[in-house]
Design a protein around this nucleic acid. Structure first.
Lengths: 159, 159
DNA sequence: GCACATATACTCGGATACATGATGTCCGAGTAGTCGTGG
DNA sequence: CCACGACTACTCGGACATCATGTATCCGAGTATATGTGC
């Protein structure tokens, strides 16, 4: 899995702690973890295309969450970065085997494909059940000063 | 996910239908689906290192299942090909953030890492619950002539 | 006819190229704020 | 003093390199079979 997923998840979480209505530039978001700003910007574009964050150009511009954290699931972020295709994509090699029919959709027929898809659906269901709000609540319970620290860092970090 | 996983799964299934004690060469296994033989051979080496198949060189040599199909899970095959690392590997970017401790194992502390791992464990559990024998039984129920067809193809295919 | 040594053909195994996609970088289009100027 | 216009600095967005990994290929080491030969 792409490393951008980890960056995107942490960045969305940090954005949820930003001042309401405040946009945070990719440079500040990247400075948080010493990430390459231009590349993080690229990942943020994917999040923007997926409707997870909204972007505003110009001074005082940057990114902010486009929806409430309750409406952003881990699956949303993963799908935005990794793409909608499933990890195990059955190429339908049975079509090349004996008795292979060119017109059959082997993703539906192939038992192996079904089994792999079942596992992948379980994974997706688990991710879809976790919202950004839930993650945030857990972090705040364990580390109560995190929201203040984050806002502070956004305000004071040198670019 | 690597395409070799699909090849390995189908190939193991086909091997389970081979004559008992018979070894099938990589060339014959690849001809089944018109796959590049040398590359499939490479994947089979990974399965052999994982103890899923055993290999014998020389004429009448090839691969055969090293264990009973009941003892081979989908997770075994996937792990043999893809490696044991989890898909979402938390690089511990929190360590670079404010208050990051160099010695902390952030895979245990980071809430995001925990959530992603929980989903991945669900995926692995699902895969570990499916054995090659189960897959084979389902296929035989739906397509009763598959075992005979497979043995026939192994015997008659031209290399 | 039988046993043995030899030659042969076939197999895996790892070392070696190639292609694709992830990773990283750069510059241009556009906007908000700022400064200067004129009324 | 106020309004307006130009300018500047800052931001995203996409186009352009670079690199790691998956994909594909080839040749050598080793073995079971077949063959030929001597007894």
């Amino acid at each position: 899995m792409s490393e951008g997923v980890e960056w995107a998840l942490h960045t969305c979480l940090n954005l949820s702690w930003a001042e309401p209505g405040e946009a945070v530039s990719a440079a500040r978001l990247a400075a948080f973890y010493r990430l390459p700003a231009a590349y993080l910007n690229k990942q943020m574009q994917a999040l923007a295309r997926a409707g997870i964050v909204s972007s505003t150009p110009g001074p005082r511009g940057g990114f902010r969450l486009a929806r409430a954290p309750e409406d952003i699931t881990l699956l949303d972020v993963v799908t935005a970065i990794e793409g909608p295709e499933e990890a195990f994509r059955c190429a339908g090699i049975l079509r090349e085997g004996p008795g292979g029919e060119p017109d059959v959709d082997y993703r539906e027929v192939c038992v192996i494909s079904q089994s792999m898809r079942k596992a992948e659906l379980s994974w997706r269901r688990e991710l879809a059940g976790q919202t950004l709000a839930g993650i945030r609540a857990t972090v705040e319970r364990r580390h109560p000063h995190t929201p203040g620290n984050t806002r502070n860092r956004f305000a004071n970090v040198k670019i």
